[in-house]
Simulated scan of single mutants.
Amino acid sequence: MPQNIALELAVQDQAGVRVAGAVGADRVELAQALALGGLTPSPATLELAIAEAASVGVEVHVLVRPRAGGFHYDADELAVCELDVRRAVAAGADGVVIGALDAAGALDLEAMARLRDAAGSASVTLHRAIDVTADPIATLRAARALGLRRVLTSGGASEAIDGIDTLRELVAAAEGAIEIMAGSGVTAASARLLADTGVDALHFSAKRTVTQTGGVRMGSASDGVGGYETTDLATAQELVGALARGVSRVCASTQVATAH
């Protein structure tokens, strides 16, 4: 495994935190609804995850995102985000993961400063809102000027492996002053290649889908009862093992795809 590269596991509950501890991850990004790109977790989920993290020795960084869809928020939504940031830090989170864009699709500097300030001394990460901006390098520089700790990015692609050239450019532009964490669709097959770009961290979800069927539709986005996603220990172990061995390609038939 490349020296000094951190591992962050995207999880939705305390069971996912236990998986992170089992595979030696440095931290978790705690969210709910990873199938939607992740939303702010519930207070109970946060409390139980923080307690579990203390016992397994990982940090908890809380995603603050009030809804699915884009990242341009109105005054009500920003008020929710600010309060969620404050409450996450007060509950014991090590950091928060945030992102807000203006009406033109650029980083909303005023909103980001407001949320950064709400986090106090906790670590602040800019999430993949950067990947839908017109100029990720300019967005990175804005995040650096705001004093953020790191940026989670796929290099502007749906999956990080397809944004690998931009990831290299972001690493160079960061100049060691802000961390670059590669994430989205990271698997055992791509982990080493992404690590070799020089990023500071890898973000992965190692999740599997549990499907359920039923004749009563439970929501506009569901087909019947629907299913849910859960953190899978074996998938996480496979990725960490491949990274440690320096394996850049493994048999595709053994992979469990991740979308976050």
Score class of each variant (00 low, 15 high):
Glu110Asn: 02
Arg87Cys: 05
Asp117His: 04
Ile137Thr: 13
Gly120Leu: 12
Gly69His: 08
Thr139His: 08
Arg144Phe: 06
Leu36Ala: 13
Tyr73Lys: 02
Leu83Arg: 11
Leu30Asn: 07
Ile50Asp: 00
Gly57Lys: 03
Ala145Met: 10
Asp117Met: 07
Leu126Ser: 00
Ala106Cys: 15
Ser55Ala: 15
Ala142Pro: 02
Gly92Asp: 04
Val124Tyr: 00
Leu34Glu: 03
His61Gly: 01
Pro43Gln: 10
Leu48His: 11
Pro41Thr: 10
Leu140Trp: 08
Arg67His: 07
Gly120His: 06
Asp84His: 03
Ala49Val: 09
Leu126Lys: 01
Pro66Arg: 02
Ser55Trp: 10
Ala54Trp: 10
Pro43Ser: 05
Ala129Pro: 01
Val151His: 04
Ser55Ile: 12
Pro136Tyr: 13
Val124Ile: 11
Glu59Lys: 14
Leu48Phe: 10
Val56Leu: 04
Ser154Gln: 11
Leu109Val: 15
Gly38Glu: 09
Asp117Gly: 02
Ala103Gln: 14
Ala25Trp: 02
Leu101Ser: 03
Ala53Cys: 08
Val124Pro: 07
Asp26Leu: 02
Thr40Asn: 02
Phe71Lys: 00
Ala103Thr: 14
Arg128Glu: 12
Arg114Gln: 13
Ala122Phe: 05
Ala33His: 05
Arg86Ser: 05
Pro43Phe: 11
Phe71Gly: 03
Thr133Tyr: 05
Gln32Ser: 15
Ala44Leu: 12
Ala49Asn: 03
Ala103Tyr: 09
Ala54Phe: 07
Asp108Met: 12
Arg114Thr: 15
Gly69Thr: 07
Pro43Arg: 04
Gly99Ile: 10
Ala134Arg: 14
Ser123Met: 08
Ala145Tyr: 01
Gly99His: 01
Ala90Phe: 00
Glu47Leu: 15
Leu36Cys: 06
Ala35Ile: 15
Ala51Phe: 07
Ile137Ala: 07
Gly70Thr: 09
Arg149His: 14
Leu34Ala: 01
Leu126Asn: 00
Val58Arg: 02
Asp26Phe: 00
Ala35Trp: 07
Val64Asn: 00
Val62Met: 01
Ala134His: 06
Arg27Ala: 13
Val132Glu: 06
Asp131His: 02
Met112Tyr: 09
Phe71Pro: 05
Ala118Asp: 13
Ala35Cys: 10
Ile98Ala: 06
Arg86Phe: 00
Ala145Lys: 09
Arg87Lys: 11
Gly99Asn: 09
Ser42His: 05
Gly105Ile: 08
Arg149Ile: 08
Gly105Tyr: 09
Arg87Leu: 13
Gly105Asn: 05
Thr125Ile: 15
Ala111Lys: 06
Gln32His: 06
Arg86Trp: 00
Arg87Gln: 13
Ala145Cys: 06
Gly147Glu: 13
Pro43Leu: 13
Ala122Tyr: 02
Leu83Cys: 04
